[in-house]
């Protein structure tokens, strides 16, 4: 149950409606503006860093990107890339990291203190085996009854015992989508092109602590319900040093789509090992977003590993397993 206290909220609403609101003539201190750095260094994608400037809380702007920064990345104290110009705050490199190495990120903005962050890319934990089967699951929500074709998967991993591990699981669908031609009244398929889509992951596995769905990060709220998201985050708190089978189901609208050919559809299961700072950031971000609109919640501060700044530098490595969808038996 998401909100069982409707009457309480109604009553509180009456109290608030009957109360007075006034604009407070209060000088909220103008703190020194900080560089905001959000970036990921990984073993599978080129490093991408976004640089912004923090704003006063009453500022009408939402984001203030900085394109005049100099961004440097060092690998084990050796400069490996330098980007001197940004695009809407984004600094894109062609440098890809390696696990086990220490990375230092420096961001220099004229007139501001240099911001920096370090991370060590964790060693990826291998996906040892994936067993799959497909099933149709029935759901009834909001007065509608529908079926979803799910790819149930048991993903076997062995968590290293001697270190603290943090993970992010996602599934990416590679498929061919139709290319359409329209002559006013009719649509014709003229061919197919490669496309990518993230699948939805569902699970009741107790290890999963958080899920990312689009621009939301949510904790696993109810042990009797599925955790659902594009990405599922978990730590090795329950499985440290153990061989473990993750029980998940992948689904996508594409499985049911009539005009998408499943002949060459592949599901790429990515098990990413992520840094502790990033995992903690996601944890606190979830609490922050949940609490911000709830007057009865304690405000949650979000951590940062950016020195002289705000934001997060995340480090990730991944282990990948690819499944051919059309070879998976479909339920009758």
């Amino acid at each position: 149950m998401k909100c069982p206290f409707k009457i309480f909220f109604l009553f509180t609403g009456v109290v608030f409606v009957s109360s007075c609101v006034k604009v407070l003539d209060y000088d909220i201190p103008e703190d020194e503006k900080k560089i905001v750095v959000n970036g990921i260094i990984s073993t599978y994608n080129p490093a991408t860093i976004y640089v912004n400037k923090s704003l006063h809380v009453l500022d009408r702007l939402e984001i203030k990107p900085i394109d005049s920064a100099i961004v440097r990345i060092y690998e084990n104290d050796i400069l490996v890339t330098e980007i001197v110009e940004g695009t809407k705050g984004g600094y894109f490199s062609d440098f890809t990291g390696s696990f086990g190495n220490k990375y230092l990120l420096e961001v220099m903005v004229p007139g501001m203190k240099t911001a920096s962050a370090t991370c060590i890319l964790p060693e990826p934990v291998l996906i040892e085996k994936v067993d799959t089967s497909s099933e149709l699951q029935e759901f009834f929500e909001y007065g509608y009854y529908y079926q979803i074709y799910m790819l149930k998967s048991i993903i076997a991993i062995t968590d290293p015992e001697t270190i603290e591990n943090f993970y992010e699981l996602e599934g990416t669908l590679l498929y061919k989508e139709p290319v359409y031609y329209s002559d006013m009244d009719t649509f014709y398929i003229t061919g197919y092109r490669k496309a990518i889509s993230n699948s939805i992951i569902r699970s009741k596995d107790p290890v999963f602590e958080y899920t990312i769905m689009g621009d939301q990060v949510l904790s696993n709220q109810n042990e009797n319900e599925f955790i659902i998201g594009n990405k599922l985050l978990f730590s090795d708190q329950l499985i440290n040093g153990m061989k473990y089978n993750l029980n998940v189901s992948f689904s996508s609208f594409l499985f049911n789509a009539n005009d998408v050919t499943t002949d060459s559809m592949r599901l790429v299961i990515r098990l990413k090992s992520v840094t502790k700072d990033y995992f903690t950031y996601m944890q606190l971000l979830e609490r922050h977003l949940q609490a911000r609109n709830d007057p009865f919640s304690e405000r949650a501060q979000v951590n940062t590993n950016i020195e002289n700044g705000l934001g997060i530098l995340a480090g990730k490595s991944e282990s990948v397993c690819t499944l051919e969808i059309n070879q998976t038996p479909k339920p009758e």
Partner: peptide, 8 residues
């Protein structure tokens, strides 16, 4: 007192 964009 300040605001900034998150990673998401």
């Amino acid at each position: 007192r300040q605001k900034y964009p998150s990673l998401l």
